[in-house]
Design a protein around this nucleic acid. Sequence first.
DNA 1: CAAAAAATTGGAAACGTTTCCACGAGGGGA
DNA 2: TCCCCTCGTGGAAACGTTTCCAATTTTTTG
Lengths: 358, 358
Amino acid sequence: MNEERTGKATSEPRTVTIKDVASRAGVGLGTVSRVLNGNENVAPQLRDQVFRAVQELGYRPNSVARSMRLGKSHAVGCLVTDIRQPIAAEMIAAAETTLGRAGYTLIVASTHFDNRREAELLSLMQNRVVDGMLLTVNRDNDLDVTQRLAAINLPMVLWERNPGGGFDTVLTEHRHGARSATSHLLDLGHREIALVAGHLDTWVGREQKAGLDAAFADRGLEQAAGLIFEVGAFKARELEALCRRERPITAIIANIDEIPGILRFCAKRGLVLPRDLSIVSIGDASILEVVTPSITAVRGNGTKVAQLAANLLLKKMSDKQSEMAPERLTVGMQLKVRHSTAPLNKDGGHGLRSQDRG
Amino acid sequence: MNEERTGKATSEPRTVTIKDVASRAGVGLGTVSRVLNGNENVAPQLRDQVFRAVQELGYRPNSVARSMRLGKSHAVGCLVTDIRQPIAAEMIAAAETTLGRAGYTLIVASTHFDNRREAELLSLMQNRVVDGMLLTVNRDNDLDVTQRLAAINLPMVLWERNPGGGFDTVLTEHRHGARSATSHLLDLGHREIALVAGHLDTWVGREQKAGLDAAFADRGLEQAAGLIFEVGAFKARELEALCRRERPITAIIANIDEIPGILRFCAKRGLVLPRDLSIVSIGDASILEVVTPSITAVRGNGTKVAQLAANLLLKKMSDKQSEMAPERLTVGMQLKVRHSTAPLNKDGGHGLRSQDRG
DNA sequence: CAAAAAATTGGAAACGTTTCCACGAGGGGA
DNA sequence: TCCCCTCGTGGAAACGTTTCCAATTTTTTG
């Protein structure tokens, strides 16, 4: 007893298990388990004894053992390309809240667009670490990826990706977003419009491109070639080339991540917004509303996407293999017209060109 | 055999275990385990047979069972207040990369400043779900929290929190940051300087306040009372009151999250930056460099904080209870002077006041 | 009051892995 | 030739739960 008080002689502080609780409380293992799981059919006196023993021994349930016995981990894997994108963080936060309420823990992992890492993470999660998955894969137009996803034997919802076929998906209407942004610019007289879209081997990028195309097609206009770029592959170099074309661009629609780079370029080159260049951001943030000039944006709703996806996943995880038909949910986008877009400046030359001759 | 091919009659696709592999390969359980874990002492022929059986059966190791047997989960819990803060996302991404290289999975959870949720999450993670923790607790000046942390029997590193006592911590030098921002403003002639700091029951907020105090004290100046606020408790209302004081503020140092709100207020009231108000952001982002006027900021390095914290945690997790003395690492901050701060405008009245009389 | 039914309880079995121990075969030394 | 040592292998035990079944007690019914 004395040794126990000082806790010195004991080499290892052996972890307290349900068995220790049982013997301390003078009951059987089954009874302890029943008490701990709120089963009603236990005599009040025994229940109290168990609780007291738990208290005294500082017992903590071992949820790994629990998971193993139940075959459920009560965890959901969440794969994103980069958690540092504000939209990704927003989605993760919302998913965490929704799933947390249902008793699930979120395991977040970023692929950073590395396909090998993505494969590793998918494999890791499949080793019965999670009960379901929320996925934004790197690419969704690759047969290899599609097959690998199809082989996953777990409830699974894709968000912002759409490989086609029998997957559950929650999608933002990027086509509509890009289309309305383009229409807005066409209405203002712009014709040389560049687009910096998401990766073209993701649904997001493809839809954005399709939206641009649709807006031109709506008006029977033909768009110039070579004005479509992917995020990441668009730097000052590319932007400069766009301004040096025979017919320089007068407007640009770009992912929000690219906006700082574009503004920096404009400042350096003395381009004045929106006189020399109109800008639309794909994705919104409060800072865009308050800068000078404020920046026109198409706004999605990542929180809503995440909530829909999380709830869909919960449904799939609870339905015992009922094999519901795959669902496809969409969330709208809205054009917020601000002051970075203006009618085409017909007579005024392009800022870069005039300066360039100096 | 036919049933097996169609896979129809079998009601349940029983999961493939190591036992199945063993019998298929015609070897014992121990041998399979040894092969799978890269143990050398296995005959090459048996090794091949095992690999072939694994392939044919599509065996996947059950890492929950593995965790249970080994008593290690190879997961690290990461608690933040809000994953949507870009600095938090940056830290998480860096920690994930560093820990991932060492074979650990990150389990991220946000408390959203809810103390009950924090307690739940800490408790959950302690149930042997993780091997170590990276923590940003809601408050670190509360005896209750400190005790609860001390009771956690797991390797653990706090980042951006410092309860004092024997905890391992990695900290950004917020005192230095706030001090240099304040000095900068004092040099420009400002005296009525407001501060919107982190929560004052976190180390971050307290250090920021201390930095402001220090800058005033350095010069033997006395600062006005009532100019210090906490993020979250600072809205347009408070800002307006600051501008209506007998001696209106001429400068403000604020957490980056508050910058959009402040700019919106200025725009609405016709305050021109930096003529009517100088602004310093605590925390930097590329957008701050390119807006007009560009915004002076003190910049930390979340990536470095996270890397240091992750490596420290790895060290603690590998050292078998060697009880190293707690470490305390710090990462610097740097003032980036831009165009949102300018010398005090002596004669020009305060924008709000003149307009207010109209 | 006896018997049947219902309620409560204890503990074995099982979840899938790793580790440890024992056994047998093969090889080398006396 | 015999013995001892080494090496490779198979399988039991253990990790901490939950669940199921059988045993016991209590309650109800005839």
